[in-house]
């Protein structure tokens, strides 16, 4: 009876019925859910001045403190809301990348160059998200302070624990993607050796 080489199975992928494929089918919806929740929050921010006021206060690091009601109204709050929307769109894009990755796991592709590329892309997405969130907070402070005669043009650069977390996760995923790419290349080489 012919036995396949142990190395040839490394890059052969999984059957769609394997435990990983079944779990990946469910896990694929987690990033979609996260993206949907953030997008709903952003839409609410654009529609409701109350929610916008809360979001802007959190951007300024003054959650729970009294805020001038007109600061959360358009047109004053237009650009700050735009700034807050950009990181959300980047995050949604990153979640779509993760969704694609889990879909590929579902289809049985595990260790290949495309998956490694997707992991790296997700890492870069998290890094960009953290950077965009920091820039958004800085610009929000600047724009809101310029519209307030008592604090003309305040520039504060700050970062939160979640920004640092996103940075760390991003760098880890990016590095992991590079390692997976190399592993996929080695596996491919092994598969071509009889």
């Amino acid at each position: 009876m012919a036995q396949p080489s142990p190395h040839s199975s490394v890059n052969a992928g999984l059957s769609p019925a394997s435990p990983l494929s079944r779990r990946a089918r469910w896990l694929a919806f987690v990033p979609l859910l996260a993206a949907a929740m953030l997008l709903i929050g952003t839409i609410a921010q654009w529609v409701s001045p109350d929610i916008r006021a809360t979001m802007l206060a959190s951007s300024l690091g003054m959650l729970g403190q009294p805020m001038q009601p007109e600061a959360a109204l358009f047109p004053t709050a237009f650009w700050p809301t735009v700034f807050r929307t950009v990181p959300v769109l980047i995050f949604a894009g990153t979640m779509l990348v993760l969704y694609q990755l889990f879909r590929r796991f579902t289809q049985g592709s595990v260790l290949d160059a495309r998956n490694a590329q997707l992991v790296s892309q997700a890492g870069l997405g998290f890094i960009l998200f953290a950077l965009a969130a920091m820039v958004a907070n800085t610009l929000t402070t600047l724009v809101l302070s310029m519209s307030d005669p008592s604090t003309p043009g305040v520039l504060t650069i700050g970062f939160t624990t979640s920004d640092i977390g996103a940075f760390a996760a991003g760098f880890a995923l990016w590095g992991l993607g590079l390692v997976l790419g190399e592993a996929a290349r080695i596996a491919n080489d092994h598969a071509s050796i009889v």
Partner: peptide, 27 residues
């Protein structure tokens, strides 16, 4: 041959056509 040496027919076919990157000493 594939059955005797413990590799797949597909691998023998690839080896015959020279479409492999290497051959193990064991094989």
């Amino acid at each position: 041959l594939a059955a005797a040496i413990g590799i797949t027919e597909q691998q023998v076919s690839l080896l015959k056509s020279g479409k492999v990157k290497g051959v193990r000493f064991e094989t």
